[in-house]
Design a protein around this nucleic acid. Sequence first.
RNA 1: GGUGGCAUAGCCAAGUGGUAAGGCCAAGGUCUGCAAAACCUUUAUUCCCCAGUUCAAAUCUGGGUGCCACCU
Length: 295
Amino acid sequence: MRDNLVIFGPTASGKSSLALELAKRYDGELINMDSMQVYQTMDIATAKPSREEMAQVPHHLFDLVLPHEDFSSQDYKRMALRAISDIRSRGKNPILVGGTGLYLSSLYYDYDFRNKDDEKRNYYNSLLKEEGIERLQELAREGFPELVDKVDINNPHRLIRLLETGQVLEEKTRSSLPLKVFYLDWERELLNGRIERRIGAMIEAGLLEEVEYIFTHYGKMEYLPSIRGIGYKEYFSYLKGTRSLEEAKERHLISTRQYAKRQRTWARNQYSDLVYIDGRLDLEEKIKLIEENWR
RNA sequence: GGUGGCAUAGCCAAGUGGUAAGGCCAAGGUCUGCAAAACCUUUAUUCCCCAGUUCAAAUCUGGGUGCCACCU
């Protein structure tokens, strides 16, 4: 059997429809690799596949939790590995599709995600809130003088991670999971045009109603990852009346462009054996290219 | 037509005589338990134009141009 197929790429690049077509042709089943499409009730802004699309081939790891429930990369890694072996055991081809780089890396590299300590993490988080990052930097310098130079001292997440686990991971090695990663690439201007059109389509599909639902149910819980998803937070100030709809749309557009840029940076620099697929190719040409490179 | 105000990077903007803050945008990058997160780097040889004063002007003076407000 061939490697597990991964369709990666920036937002609005057309990953989902390409993956769906591949699944149909190659007896495949799709596995979500997007950190926001795991949330139930968040459908439009996350560009989740429609009910009709999901009915065409099996879709895994979508709609796993409610927006206020915890879900993180280690949960993803565990569930994705299980889904892959489940699909393969039935003789089907798993196809991972999504744009969350960390989720891909958790499978591509030997991420172990060890030494979690919720108690410490909560403590340091409250310390950060009350006394600022300087206090955490102080503690890190005192507690781990040899390691502190290896972390990004200005980044609260990294700093807390060091304090929590007492270690800094250096070398990352390729995992034993066979993955063939394709990156659906678009020239920046073209992708920006696609993003703009997609946001227009989202609004027509009822984005504002969805945002309002999320806002009324979870709007107070600003710390939730789901609430910070693109296409929600940008409209909250509109709903509160402090920003016009036009401004909210503009912010939505900018956030999405910036996200696409980060995805591109991630892809360029994290995976050495990536195969780029030019987004301008038509569907048959894309599939042909994948076929040729898929061992 | 008169009077007043304002002209600083793609946008917003600080700076009133000593050698161009900051924010946004943009570009490049980092990444092992929130990742659609968080963080880092870069970005005005020059302040609307011309002339003058001064050792020194974005800052002062005169003229011009443009925009805004009020008056007629």
